[in-house]
Amino acid sequence: MHPVVKLVAQRLALSLLLLLAASILIFAGTMILPGDVAQSILGQSATPESLANLREELGLNDPPVTRYFDWLFGAMQGDLGTALTNGRDIAESIGQRLSNTLFLAFWAAIISVPLAILLGLIAVRYKDRWPDKLISGVTLASISIPEFLIGYLLMYYLAVQLGWFPSVAMINDGMSLGQKLQSIALPVIVLTLVVLAHMMRMTRAAILNVMQSAYVETAELKGLSGFQVIYRHAFPNAIAPIVNVVMINLAYLVVGVVVIEVVFVYPGMGQYLVDHVSKRDVPVVQACGLIFAAVYILLNMIADIVSILANPRLRHPK
């Protein structure tokens, strides 16, 4: 078997194992939270009998291991249970929310990833000169300001003062793509500013590291221009670390956007999670946790696999 196939298969198997471990942690974590689900559904005035009945009905009297496997097999078949607060099917509610979150994350990624890499390349080309310092300064400043502050500042100037974009990012199925994009413009800008610096700095550092190599000197002595040396010879050897940091930031775009969604009242996963945490709706919290874990593990697995494929020694063994 080709060694790359074996390595990729190993990564896949490892990711599944990791996801299983995460599901155990999530389940155990919500189990040890104080409070009783039946109590919180029925309220303080519930009679002991109705509490006991509801516990029986929800399967709360079963041993934890049985309940874990019931939950896990259900989740594997797409059944995440029903929300305690409104009795709706969780999978259905999450479906809409998740696609909204992914929509926002997708457009933020489409803008921020190429921009970060391009800025990184420019920073390397003009290392220690004013373009490098300007890029570093601006991106570091934008990552240092809390994201909700950037959000409100942009909202004030671009939405309230200039009126270019709506200040509340509401989207629904009836809107055209253009309308949707206009609606999410502000959160996309904020998210881009937040993740740009990290990816840009890593691109810069990874390429600068490669620029020390003898083969970069060889390329310079071939008479190639600065940019040719960087994108033909340095960049292909810096892909692995860059992909890693890109994937961590993509994961952040999906699972870390709670604050932005709240600021812009965007109907995504983050808000959904926050709402239900405050209501102690345990099945929803578990479902969100599982999906976030899956996204994280999936993106990091992709980063690992890209790193393996980017290595010519593994792709073309002797």
Binding site: A214, Y215, T218, A219, L221, G223, L224, P312, R313
Partner: peptide, 25 residues
């Protein structure tokens, strides 16, 4: 002009070819 000279009129062979070839190409 120096770029046009390098790799055309004057070329270079280094001590360690193993390090001087780009591993990715």
């Amino acid at each position: 002009d120096i770029r046009n000279l390098r790799g055309a009129e004057v070329t270079y062979v280094s001590q360690s070819a193993a390090a001087s070839f780009n591993p990715a190409k």
